[in-house]
Computed example of a mutant assay.
Amino acid sequence: MRGDELYDDPVFLAGYRELRRDKRGLNDELEIPAMAALHPAVDGLRVVDLGCGEGDLAVRLAEGGAVEVLGVDASAAMLARAGAHPRVRYERADLADFDLSSASVDLVVSSLALHYVEDFGGLVGRVADWLVAGGWFVFSVEHPVVTAPLVEGPLDDYADEGPRQRTWFVDGVVKYHRTLGATLATLQQHGFSLHAVQEPLPTEAQVAAHPHLAIHRRRPPLLLVSAQVVR
């Protein structure tokens, strides 16, 4: 099941929402604070959030001072429950072909969505075109050591990029594995200068408070990248 279909599947969506409600995922303890620390100050910026889901990040950015935020997602079910804010609007679109005018935004963000995108290079090229000179692209994805195995299990098949099928609430969830080097090289090929590359891990205190995070002390679950387009 592809990413543009996944979040409209009722079985998957029920499991995902329970995970977020019970705070058993990586979002609250790892990804959200790491993303907040990595993106630039958003006061006065025009922002696009790719794979915005129910709009949590989009609303936080608007509350942080962004003058306008466009949240883009393929899931009608997620957008139906997206958070409201006077400076946030939403658009339903597949990231595979979504496009904007050249030099029309200052910051593009994406939270744990781009590992569902097959043509990462094509998307990065479009993002570079949307951004003004000096604009920022900040995103998180599942770490390549997590996406690499062709079958679920220990790290293996790292060099073989491409689709992977996983069971996550439902069978046949399709994600795309790219090596760390390939991800960073793609950004540089499209005119981005790398600002930061981070692999957040839970602290011992976080593991003590949230035991489900213990496995993520053994290998990084997330990759976050901040890059600035150079013209």
Rank of each mutant, 00 (worst) to 15 (best):
70 L>F: 03
71 G>R: 04
72 V>A: 02
73 D>K: 00
74 A>I: 02
74 A>C: 06
75 S>E: 03
77 A>N: 15
79 L>P: 08
80 A>P: 11
81 R>P: 05
83 G>M: 12
90 Y>C: 05
93 A>C: 06
93 A>L: 07
97 D>Y: 07
100 L>N: 00
102 S>N: 13
103 A>H: 13
103 A>D: 14
104 S>W: 09
105 V>H: 00
105 V>I: 04
106 D>A: 08
107 L>I: 02
109 V>S: 13
110 S>P: 01
111 S>C: 11
111 S>R: 13
112 L>W: 03
112 L>G: 05
113 A>C: 07
115 H>W: 03
116 Y>C: 01
117 V>C: 05
117 V>H: 07
117 V>R: 01
119 D>I: 09
121 G>E: 06
123 L>V: 07
125 G>K: 14
128 A>C: 06
129 D>H: 15
129 D>A: 13
135 G>M: 05
135 G>T: 06
135 G>K: 02
138 V>N: 05
138 V>E: 12
139 F>Y: 10
139 F>G: 04
140 S>K: 01
141 V>T: 14
141 V>Q: 12
141 V>H: 13
149 P>M: 07
149 P>V: 04
149 P>C: 12
150 L>S: 10
152 E>R: 12
152 E>M: 09
153 G>E: 00
155 L>G: 03
156 D>I: 14
157 D>E: 15
157 D>Y: 05
159 A>H: 15
159 A>W: 15
160 D>L: 13
161 E>S: 02
166 R>Q: 12
167 T>E: 08
171 D>G: 11
173 V>N: 07
173 V>F: 09
174 V>Q: 11
175 K>Q: 13
176 Y>D: 04
177 H>R: 03
177 H>T: 05
179 T>Q: 03
180 L>R: 15
181 G>C: 02
183 T>Y: 11
